[in-house]
Design a protein around this nucleic acid. Structure first.
Lengths: 222, 222
DNA sequence: TCTTGTCCGAATGTCGACATTAGGAGGGTG
DNA sequence: CACCCTCCTAATGTCGACATTCGGACAAGA
């Protein structure tokens, strides 16, 4: 059994605010005022402060001394930073996961890919596919059994989602076709011991997404 | 000119507590009680809470729901995690720095290495050498011009120092001889464009330190 | 007109009091 | 004797009030 996670109000508050940012309720640049959020969420300012600190740690917001907190803007620079950093840690994660993943963990990865394939065939919306994508990588990091590496991923994850969602909004997703095959290949490589090749593919898998997004972001707005 | 940094009390509190952990005032496993620290530092509990959250983010302490905060113990597992993660991000940092460092930044790196050489010759103590080591890498990350990467380093840095200090305390440092040459080589590689080789050397530079420390930590206590 | 100084509102930074929780001491029971 | 239940204490979690800081509006002076 998985142990129940006991969190305080600030954890829940962070989830709400994060969701609001990711689903576009709070657009980039929006000022997040503590009293306002505290009123909306029905918690004290202290809890909101902790939540915002957490989100800043995740790179979703930025705050300055006595000048408040604002939602981070997704510029090509940000996308490049997020994806290059992710590619780098993904390399380590996949290498470790290949060494340490149990057969049942690998089977569960297969399961996720199967669900992806199903989602693609049934024409599910992009957000659903994205959730599966994230879940896949969550499992890889868990299989790597490297606490600090996983924390680095958790800190980056929200930014990754934000970048991918931005891409979807720009209407140039078109990753439906590739996503299943790429992840299928990743599982196969994790299963094998061809670590060198694995590291390269894992890195390229991420960098490919980056190139596409930075390209989209550079184009004139539609 | 470099803009002055305005921080709140929690920043200062975090510095004090961090120093206390690094200089051995708070040994691993010590419980850090909020009211106690607030009294000692002369600030409110809120500020101490923020400081502890920051230190947890840096991996120096761990806290559980309603069970308080404790100083992280340096086990071989922790050392391995810290150094493998560091090696991974250092690879990206050195690659970027090689592309982006200005001549003056490279010259300043030379300066740091010179100071190292001087320190070794004059028989300075290990802590001083360590400070120069950290400063060297700080400058590399700054030259890489990658905000998120630098933040990842800042989060890891304290843990790196803690690991290295532990090593010094174990009395098996013996890195006096290597440290200058290794960093000198790094600067040369950053200057050149042999990026592939640079990435490998940068990674090995870190992994070597890890091997030594995990070895030391495995040995019976002296 | 441009600069400089002052005031003001609104937000964050800080604080101490109250509520909640974990873990142990103590006693009762099988 | 082991087990479990209850209570108690000491710590953290939460809250609202007060202090400080920022940036803009406004006016006086060069």
């Amino acid at each position: 059994m998985k142990k129940v996670e006991r969190r305080g109000l600030s954890g829940g508050a962070a989830d709400r605010i994060r969701d609001a940012i990711l689903d576009g309720t709070f657009l980039p640049g929006t000022a997040l005022r503590e009293v306002e959020l505290a009123g909306t969420l029905g918690v004290s300012r202290g809890a909101v402060r902790e939540a915002l600190a957490q989100l800043e740690h995740e790179g979703l917001v930025q705050s300055e001394w006595h000048r408040g907190t604002r939602v981070t803007d997704v510029t090509p620079e940000v996308a490049e930073e997020v994806y290059t950093l992710r590619a780098t840690i993904e390399r380590l994660a996949s290498t470790l996961a290949a060494q340490r993943a149990t057969p049942s963990e690998l089977a569960e990865l297969d399961g996720v890919v199967d669900r992806m394939a199903l989602a693609v065939e049934s024409g599910a919306d992009a957000a659903e596919l994205l959730a599966l994508d994230i879940e896949f990588h969550d499992r890889v990091y868990r299989a790597a059994r490297h606490r600090r590496l996983r924390e680095a991923w958790l800190a980056l994850r929200s930014s990754v989602r934000l970048c991918q969602l931005t891409r979807i909004r720009l209407g140039r997703a078109g990753y439906r076709g590739l996503v299943v095959d790429e992840h299928r290949e990743l599982v196969e490589l994790l299963r094998g011991t061809a670590e060198k090749r694995l590291a390269r593919v894992a890195e390229e898998h991420v960098l490919g997404a980056m190139t596409a997004l930075t390209h989209d972001l550079t184009l004139p707005a539609t």
